[in-house]
């Protein structure tokens, strides 16, 4: 076991443990906070895999933006801050079975497939901002630009959806 692995395993354990808490806790806000922990631990994992830029972007966007958005959502839907009893649907047993099945299958396949493969991390510069940025703008320009259009569209969409005054004008009586 190399040093990187020694660090990776506890980080992974933290990520996994906190993500389990995300899907099991009975308090909405805590779920969001546990998500922060999980995503942070994952950022650490990215660092260990020499993906420096990705790790920082993860922290910035996920922890900084997405989770904040989620918290806003929780507040706007007037969710109870404390414990709530009905966060899980009746589908829990089936969900557990499917999830365990997925885990079992994936782990089996993955372990079977990559038992001997190992990563040579090299000098660790493969994931620096410079390298990734050069790659992005040399080979991934078109997708990058498309993505910006997508973001714009999503922005417009979000606005349209959330503003009351530009929704459908006449509301039919059929809705309940």
């Amino acid at each position: 076991m190399t040093g990187a692995e020694l660090v990776f395993v506890p980080l992974g354990a933290v990520a996994l443990g906190s993500s389990v808490l995300v899907v099991t806790t009975d308090q909405l806000v805590r779920a969001a906070l546990w998500l922060v922990v999980a995503l942070g631990a994952l950022a650490g994992c990215f660092l260990l895999l020499a993906a420096e830029l990705v790790a920082w972007v993860q922290v910035l966007i996920y922890v900084g933006a997405v989770v904040v958005l989620l918290l806003f959502g929780i507040m706007l839907t007037r969710a109870p801050i404390g414990r709530s009893v009905d966060l899980d649907s009746g589908n829990r047993v089936a969900a557990l079975v499917v999830a365990l099945g997925t885990a079992g299958t994936l782990v089996t396949v993955v372990v079977g497939g990559f038992r001997t493969a190992s990563i040579d991390l090299g000098d660790g510069s493969a994931g620096s901002a410079g390298t990734v940025g050069a790659g992005l703008f040399r080979y991934w320009v078109l997708p990058f630009e498309l993505l910006s259009v997508l973001l714009l569209a999503a922005l417009v969409g979000a606005i349209v959806l959330s503003r009351r005054d530009i929704g459908p004008r006449a509301r039919d009586g059929g809705e309940d």
């Binding site: 692995e5 992974g12 990520a15």
Partner: peptide, 9 residues
């Protein structure tokens, strides 16, 4: 580092 660790995670 083994691939197995991150992939299993």
């Amino acid at each position: 580092m083994h691939v197995v660790y991150p992939v299993v995670l």
